[in-house]
Amino acid sequence: MPLFGVRDVTPLLADAPLMEGLDTAPETLPGVEVLQVLFEISSAAMLDLLPRALSPTIPPTVTFVFWRCREGPFGPFSLAQVRVGCRAGVRPRGFPLRAYCDAEPAATALAARWGFACRPGAVRLRRFYDRIVGTVEANGRPVLQVSLLDPQIIVGVEVQYTANMNLARVRDGQGERVRLVQVDPEYTLRRVDRGRPQLDLFVPEAWRAEGVEPVYPVSASITLADITLPRIRYIVDPDVPALQGTEKVAP
């Protein structure tokens, strides 16, 4: 059967947000710019990056994801995530290693309601004529810069965004538990541009991504989308294969 991760999530819990209940109402973020840059990574550490519930993609991948939200229920904010591509059972997913957010109200809401492990950071998404550049600074030093080069609008394409499996401490009727919280937003795409991916700077330790070694650029896209953050429907025991360890918490 497929390979499974071997990561003990205990050391990650210091970052994991506490979710007081799972009855999260959906929330729509209008007109979000979404930059996604995908790289293949070295397979050497692919199992060490994922909890035991998840299987790596073959080849293993990492996605650098930026959201720039100019308005909405949490006010303007920018978010950057580094996610390892994976499978939860038969479903394509991403396991976020860490996120940075530049606005405290948004970071608090994303953590408390959807389990995003957000740290404060300077997240910027800048458009140039020939490129779109995403940068993150944390504690005053640059920790990520990715670019989409030569953007070209493409039509008739749905970018496939995979759901997050956010590691969180969940408090519900069964007490406090450590779970992977499935967050599968709906994206209504208004425009899609594609370009060449480029990784200019990546500091793995700033992302809890030791072992992530991007080796092969695959794709870069930027979309304009309305994003609806969903009601939480599934949570997964991080230490049990997802086919056995998935629990439905809402219809």
Binding site: P2, T61, G89, P92, G156, V159, Q160, V218
Partner: peptide, 20 residues
């Protein structure tokens, strides 16, 4: 289960050549 583990073209690379 095995088929679902594959990294499809469309998942990795947005293109009209591999449509939903």
């Amino acid at each position: 289960y095995l088929a679902a583990q594959l990294l499809t073209a469309r998942e990795a690379y947005p293109t009209p050549a591999y449509p939903l």
